[in-house]
């Protein structure tokens, strides 16, 4: 995880988790590392890890039962929302970048489709 020093680190950790969930590296019901393990693996302060976990609990992304390790939620709706959120955030960035060039939507979609399929093909070939 690359840390941006102008944004609260705990929110960056939350986003990191959401990405992992969207990619499928974390699946519903999976146990997640302890705050100390997380701090060590991401090279962050354990307090920050703690705060990130608290935030994720509040958002319903993870839940903890007494004396058990925390788990990714099994609530499919929340998991879907996470995915949607990420897609929307990425598209937002993309739109912000492409808007000044003033491309017609049809042309843009065609280029996106070509590029996207090409990327996937290349990845499969590797």
């Amino acid at each position: 995880m690359n840390v941006n020093t102008r944004e609260p680190v705990y929110l960056q950790v939350v986003r990191h988790f959401k990405e992992q969930i969207a990619i499928g590296n974390f699946v519903a019901g999976q146990e997640i590392p302890s705050r100390r393990e997380l701090a060590a693996s991401l090279n962050i302060n354990p307090n920050t890890a703690q705060k990130a976990y608290k935030e994720m609990e509040e958002q319903g992304l993870i839940h903890t039962e007494r004396n058990f390790p925390s788990q990714i939620t099994t609530n499919e709706t929340i998991l879907q929302v996470v995915r949607q959120e990420l897609i929307l955030a990425a598209v937002d960035t993309f739109v912000d970048a492409i808007r000044p060039i003033n491309v017609p939507v049809d042309e843009l979609l065609r280029v996106v489709k070509e590029k996207y399929s090409e990327e996937i093909r290349e990845e499969e070939e590797k």
């Binding site: 840390v3 701090a39 991401l42 962050i44 302060n45 354990p46 307090n47 920050t48």
Partner: peptide, 25 residues
């Protein structure tokens, strides 16, 4: 991150903040 902080209090002096900026409370 792995050994120092845990439950301890840490005071550190530095003039080069870069390496640890994200670790400081």
């Amino acid at each position: 991150a792995s050994h120092l902080i845990e439950d301890r209090g840490v005071i550190i002096t530095t003039h080069e903040i870069g390496d640890i900026e994200h670790l400081i409370d």
